[in-house]
């Protein structure tokens, strides 16, 4: 069984992003970039399935500019067998990303596609669900546990009410939540080994994907700031302050 894994590069989660003063975007020059944390979890899950003998091949997919190769090498160093780089200078929105994944699915015929539940730059939380719809296959979003057996995935999902368990026939799309696993660290020898693993480059334009998303971002703004509060010296003072505000 082949597994396709979404492996997006985003601004590192530790960076507090700044909005450009003219409102045209956020400052990304010189900012640290890393794998989307949910995608590291997706890759880790795929690798564990391969280690268990459930999967035979793990392919990481990145859609992005020419310099994405270094990022994809990290995915290879973590353990993916190979990478597919869909090359485009433009940022792609979730619907376009889903259409790209569908093209790759037609070519690769995977039985499982694991994506992150959301990319922490656009916080869209859409691509996996859109892909599953276009592919007309099951989706199991926000997964915190995945078991594959007898041609189906049994997935525990983190939902607002608690934990939901669903069963999905393969092929299917799974999106990862934080507690699915803890991604392994990349070891130095693996970085060396990854150098000889294949990265397949495909020009976005050659896929025949319509990139019209019907959405346009017209302005970026910094969020409203909360005004600085006060410090109280003890429990009694805190309770008095809350009582005064009518909160206790």
């Amino acid at each position: 069984m082949k597994i396709l894994v979404g492996y997006k590069r985003v601004v590192d989660y530790n960076v507090r992003i700044q909005v450009k003063p003219d409102g045209t975007g956020v400052v990304t020059d010189g900012v640290k970039l890393s794998a989307n944390p949910f995608d590291d979890i997706a890759l880790e899950e795929a690798l564990r399935l391969r280690e268990k003998g459930v999967a035979t091949e793990v392919i990481v997919v990145g859609i992005g500019p020419a310099d994405l190769t270094a990022h994809l090498r990290n995915g290879l160093a973590m353990g993916a067998n190979r990478a597919i780089h869909v090359v485009t200078a433009d940022a792609v929105q979730p619907l376009t990303a889903a259409r790209v994944f569908l093209k790759l699915i037609e070519k690769e015929q995977p039985e499982l596609v694991i994506l992150g539940k959301q990319a922490i730059d656009d916080d869209a939380n859409q691509t996996g669900q859109m892909l599953a719809a276009l592919w007309d296959r099951p989706q199991a979003t926000f997964a915190s546990r995945v078991d594959i057996a007898d041609g189906k995935a049994t997935v525990t999902r983190e939902v607002d009410a608690g934990l939901e368990v669903i069963e999905a026939e393969l092929p299917a799309v799974i999106t990862t939540d934080l507690r699915l696993n803890e991604p392994r660290f990349i070891k130095l020898p693996d970085i060396m080994k990854a150098k000889s693993k294949p990265i397949d480059s495909i020009e976005f334009g050659s896929l025949g994907v319509e990139a019209h998303d019907h959405l346009r971002t017209t302005h970026y703004a910094a969020p409203a700031k909360r005004s600085k509060g006060v410090m109280v010296k003890d429990a009694a003072e805190l309770v008095a302050a809350l009582k005064q505000k009518g909160l206790l």
Binding site: V11, R16, I17, V19, V26, I120, T218, A221, A222, P223
Partner: peptide
């Protein structure tokens, strides 16, 4: 977007 560190108009 970005965990609420930027607000965009779409």
């Amino acid at each position: 977007i970005y965990a609420g560190n930027a607000i965009i108009t779409v």
